[in-house]
């Protein structure tokens, strides 16, 4: 039960962050877009500052709770590489990821984002089913 409440609280902060980005800077808080632009030298200061903030988040978590958030990677290194390529390529091709389409897109009731979220949920579910099938 507490994990649900903590997840809800975490989600609330993510929503708040998205509202701040739009209200102050007029931009959608879409991480794939922000990171993609930052590494390609577009709007370096603003996009770079958002990325720096993302990195600070877990540090603030550590400062507040004296432990780092859990990160358990079970995938083998070649699988991690493949997953990284697919996530990077796909999020740019689909114009967004879990943040831009998932949070702000759904909140704006954008038909494109709703289609994107349904699609990546379906293929994500298929990928995990595939992994489970391959492992068992």
């Amino acid at each position: 039960m507490t994990s649900y409440l903590v997840s809800l609280l975490g989600g609330t902060l993510i929503g708040l962050s998205s509202v701040i980005m739009l209200m102050l800077n007029g931009r959608i808080a879409g991480v794939s877009g922000i990171v993609g632009r930052a590494v390609q030298g577009v709007g370096v200061w603003t996009n770079g500052a958002f990325v720096a903030g993302l990195l600070l988040g877990p540090v603030v978590h550590f400062a507040a709770f004296r432990h780092w958030p859990t990160v358990t990677v079970t995938a083998s290194l070649p699988l991690v590489m493949l997953a990284g390529l697919l996530v990077g390529f796909g999020s740019r091709m689909g114009s967004g990821c879990t943040s831009g389409h998932g949070v702000m897109g759904l909140a704006r009731l954008s038909p494109r984002s709703i289609a994107a979220v349904l699609t990546f949920l379906a293929s994500g579910i298929a990928a995990v089913a595939l992994l489970r099938g391959a492992v068992l």
């Binding site: 990284g84 996530v87 796909g90 689909g94 879990t98 979220v117 699609t119 990546f120 995990v128």
Partner: peptide, 18 residues
Amino acid sequence: VGSAIFGLGWGLGGFCPG
């Protein structure tokens, strides 16, 4: 197609960009 590719990577690795 882009979202489908993204979701595949998301499921395989368990990571999205953020």
